[in-house]
């Protein structure tokens, strides 16, 4: 079991040594059951850090922000930033390293074990507690969560309130770290692509009806994009829509800024947005589920990415986020990649 005191001690130590710029971790939220991101600069604040099954956020998104901020500074502080990562999040760090978006020396990785369980789904937990608030969410022995609510302690089987992605997780222990807390408890999902197979088993028209209903809800707020650590492009095709054509717009400008997608939440535009998003994340999405969690309309966007994760595995034997030295899915090929679909 991760000893929280060990995490705090380690955090305090690295900050006191002065080799770390700050720590990106989790702290308890003053109003709400779930933990929230914490940015710790001073050693005495290391006390605030927490690690429990309510730490759902994938904090690696903040590494992207950090890089951007640093790029703008005249005399940037070049010390590494420390970050607390779960298994899934650590795979996001691997992808950022693989794509050379960040360098290994820019980050100090504090891995935490999910103790053979994972993190909770806030909605599932709320339902389970029938609207009551949980004051504390803890890992408990083997596959259970210990919830403290209204002074009462309840044990809930992890399977019942785990986040969807945790049910299909294949790395519930960090795959890369400088320091790791907690034991490596293997928990292999019986079927890592169960959610996808469920949709695949539907008929073509049923699949269409399902996605049409889901994607038509999208209001194009781009929360799913903002929250994703892999959506770090400086320019996104989706944004060329803000380009206004005026009388003095040159042909060159028009050719450079093609309006591929309209911002209006029209059904067809929504499909194009979501398909492009999924394809650009193929071989890069590590299934942290943040896109789905951030969506205000409960659209299961994660499933589009998961489908491509499944295809990458089945067609190209490619697994995302385990090896930073490996060429990426889209920048490599094998001579015998399948081509039975080609005429």
């Amino acid at each position: 079991m991760v000893n929280l005191e060990d995490l705090k001690k380690e955090a305090k130590r690295i900050l006191e040594e002065g080799k770390i710029k700050y720590i990106i971790g989790y702290e308890r939220s003053p109003n709400g059951m779930m933990s929230m991101p914490a940015f710790i600069k001073n050693p005495e604040d290391a006390e605030r850090l927490t690690w429990d099954p309510s730490c759902v956020y994938n904090l690696t998104r903040f590494l992207v922000d950090e890089k951007r901020r640093k790029a703008k500074e005249k005399k940037p502080d070049t010390r590494p930033v420390a970050i607390v990562v779960k298994g899934c999040d650590s795979r996001a760090v691997v992808v950022l390293l693989q794509e050379k978006f960040i360098n290994r020396e820019d980050v100090y990785i504090l891995g935490v074990s999910c103790e053979g369980a994972g993190v909770v789904d806030e909605k599932k937990l709320t339902e389970k507690l029938k609207g009551k608030k949980a004051d504390k969410i803890e890992f408990s022995e083997k596959d259970h969560f210990l919830i403290t609510s209204d002074g009462e302690k309840i044990k809930i089987p992890a399977q019942e309130i785990l986040a969807e992605r945790c049910l299909e997780c294949r790395a519930n222990f960090p795959v890369i770290y400088d320091e790791v807390l907690g034991e490596k408890v293997e928990r292999r999902p019986e079927d890592p692509f169960k959610s996808i197979e469920r949709i695949e088993s539907l008929s073509k028209e049923e699949r269409w009806a399902f996605w049409k209903e889901q994607l038509d809800k999208c209001i194009r707020c781009y929360a799913c994009r903002s929250v994703c650590p892999m959506c770090y492009c400086d320019e996104c095709v989706v944004d060329t829509i803000s380009f206004a054509v005026a009388a003095d717009t040159t042909a060159e400008e028009k050719a450079q800024k093609i309006k591929w997608i309209e911002r209006s939440p029209d059904s067809s535009e929504n499909f194009v947005y979501h398909l492009v998003r999924a394809i650009h994340l193929a071989g890069r999405c590590i299934d942290c589920g943040e896109c789905e969690r951030a969506c205000p309309l409960d659209i299961p966007v994660r499933l589009l990415n998961k489908k491509l994760e499944k295809e990458a595995k089945e067609l190209f034997d490619y697994e995302v986020g385990f090896d930073p030295e490996k060429p990426s899915l889209a920048s490599s090929f094998k001579d015998d990649d399948p081509e039975d679909f080609i005429r």
Partner: peptide, 8 residues
Amino acid sequence: KKLLEFIG
């Protein structure tokens, strides 16, 4: 191709 089929 796989993705297009997946959405129906």
